[in-house]
Amino acid sequence: MTTMIQVENVAKTFTLHNQGGARLPVFDNVNFSVEAGEALVLAGASGAGKSSLLRILYGNYRPTAGSIRITHAGRPVDIVSAVPRTVLDIRRRTLGFVSQFLRVIPRVSTLDIVRDPLLARGAAPEIATEKAKVMLARLNLPERLWNLAPATFSGGEQQRVNIARSFVDPSAVMLIDEPTASLDAANRDVVVELIAEARAAGSAIVGIFHDEAVRERVATRYLDITAFRKAA
């Protein structure tokens, strides 16, 4: 087994300087690891810090303490202390983040958004386009939308574009935050399949799923982060 994520002694406290310096402790002493081919599902009540933890794993939030080693290009790299260009390289080649919302870039077409990760990893344009089309079709996004920029799409359509982009070339480590929130049952099933396929291909997955049925179909293991709540 290959350990893909190794979390050690991670803590997070937000300090809100413009609210009298209020300190908002979220968690403390978080330790766990994730192997290739596993799907770890984060559990805990709303506000427990699931999304914060996922963002920390991505190098988006900065933890107050601790280290997170991501296996990148065959060796562990601490994303907490890595310089910006290393973090970006880890994200480009190893680490994917699937959020609930698509960050729309003006004027870029759906097809270009979806094939972009393949191009960034060096795929030939025709192959990238072909794979992007297959993925959009699987997620039942009408073909007439493919050449449009998603700015005007519905919430569920944008979400499917986002999922297509994330799964067109699954990363070795995938972080997933509520990907099915505004999807119908059929598309939810597709997402569950995509996650299973990525896992079968060796991806390590850490996810948050509010939908209990989805959660149970995806998870190989649970981590309740309430256990790490910082003692007041």
Binding site: T15, G59, R62
Partner: peptide
């Protein structure tokens, strides 16, 4: 200073927090 999304999503300095809020 830092990675753009870090600074914008998890600003640490009082002034950056004011700017992003």
């Amino acid at each position: 200073q830092g990675l753009t999304d870090q600074v914008l999503d998890d600003p640490h300095h009082a002034y950056t927090q004011l700017l992003t809020s």
